[in-house]
Structures are given as structure tokens and as C-alpha cells.
Design a binder for these strands. Sequence first.
DNA 1: GACCAGGTAGCAA
DNA 2: TTGCTACATGGT
Length: 293
Amino acid sequence: MERGTVPVDDLDGRLDLYATIESGQSYLWGRTDDRCYAGERPDGAWYHTTVGGEVLLARQRDGRLEWRASADLADALRGRLRLGDDLRAIEADAPEDDLIRAAYDAHRGLRLVRDPFFPTLVAFICSAQMRVGRIHGMQVALREAFGDPVEFDGDTYHRFPTPEALASTTEAELRDLGLGYRAPYVRRTAELVASGEHTRADVTGLPYEEAREALTGFVGVGEKVADCVLLFSLGYLEAVPLDTWIRTAIEEHFPDCARGNYEDTSRAIRERFGGEYAGYVQTYVFHHLRTGA
DNA sequence: GACCAGGTAGCAA
DNA sequence: TTGCTACATGGT
């Protein structure tokens, strides 16, 4: 058992673990009280996930981020939760706007995540026309059905299934987990990755818009899902996924950014959101609107 | 019983 | 290219 603590003061006072994990950007964590996405902050419960074959638990309490794990995962925790991001500078970089300011003020400490590629790809393929709580439920079901179990401190956790494992499933098995019409998308994308026909290597290193185009080569991945993978996994912080909530925000709050198609609207709203960290602005506004601004 | 949810694939024009 | 439409499923 390895463990450690990070004083939130060392993060410039800016960390909200609950908002970071339960704002609909990451579906790789669970809660020891099994209350993920029930709309309430954990009261002493731990968040848990896996890193490689190791188990990592974390919670925020009394001004500290505490973690315990089956190995020394301090660096992994720092990477996954983007603890190195200078939120004060990122906030200062945001354009002056009522809605953006309200979102930053209401959810101070929300950080983007940097999740592993394949699980993020699958989660957002599953996200089509689906509420965040159910997206999370699907990922839990996938882990428990097809992911390798890992024992830690008397409890059993499950890794996210490998591309090979999901490629070996049947569409019917995936439908039985509640994936609906997304089942064949997940299976075919897993096959592409497992066979090496189309992989992360075909995406990383490309300029933003080219990387987004390359991601649509996976099955079930259009421009919006591609933007989510770029933002929440591959570190393209300028990506602004245009989902129903952001489209509504554009209509009602940034109507001059509305264009006829995804590509042009994307360029306009990215510019309006300040460019380099537009994805941060997007995630705050999304979370703010979705939680009832 | 509609309506909606972090949309995309497939097809017609 | 652009513009439909079908697609599963559970909650409100």
C-alpha cells in the first residue's frame, strides 16, 4: 500500500475533485459509496480507478487531496487530474463574458482530465444521445463484463477492457449491457485498434483539425466525439465539443458564432472562447449549464 | 405516452 | 458537399 497527500494550497487553492470527476468528462472512476453521478458530493467516500494493472483511490478532504494505491501512483494521479495546470492563469486567460465568468466562479477548482485513449474513445462512442449517468453506467458494465479483475485492500476492481477483449465480443453481448445501437460501433472500433488498422498512432502529433479528422476514422466517431477525445485524452485544450448544451449556449448567448456547419461554428466558438484554452471554457460552461445555471 | 439525452452512419439529391 | 432519417434505451 502506497499513499500520499497533496495540500490543495499547493494547487493555488484550486481543486474540486468532485466537479473534475463527475462533470461528464471522465467515465473511468467509481465511488466506494457507489453514488457516482447521483448529483451529490461524496461524504468521505473514495474515488477509484485503475492505472495499468494497479488500483488508485483518491478523495478530497480537509483541504487535502489524499490518495492510496497498490503502487506509487503519485505521478499518474498528477497527470490524470492535470494537477500541473495553472488554473489561475487559465481563468485569467478566459475572455470577459457574463456566462463564462459565472461558470468559472461557480465551479472553481474544476480541472480537465487526461484519461487514457482507448477507454475515452469507447466512452464517448457510447455517449451519443445518452445522459451522463447512463454513459457512466455503460462503462461500469463494460469493465465488469470484459475487464480483468484486480484485487486491492480486500476489494475487487476491474480494468477497462482491452481493444482485443472488446473486439472478441459479439454485438449481442454488448447490446445486453444496454449499449443499444452503439454496440456495433464499439465492437468495430475495437477491431480497428486491435488489428492495428487504425490506432492512436494515426492521430497523435497532428495539428488540431487534422487530428479531429483522423479520429473520425473510428466507427461511431464524428466531429463531436472526436473533439471529446482530443480534449479529455489527447491534451488538445483548444478543442470545443459542440454538443446539445454548447449548441444551445451558442444560440442563446453567442449567436454571432453560429455557422451552418460544425467546422465553421467550431472555429468561431474556439476563437470566442479564447483559443488556446477554449476547451477549459467549454467544460466549465457545459458543467454550469448542465447542473442548472 | 411524448420528449430528451455530451450524435453518427448511411443514403439521396 | 449538404440534408434527411433511423437508430436503443431509460428517465422525466
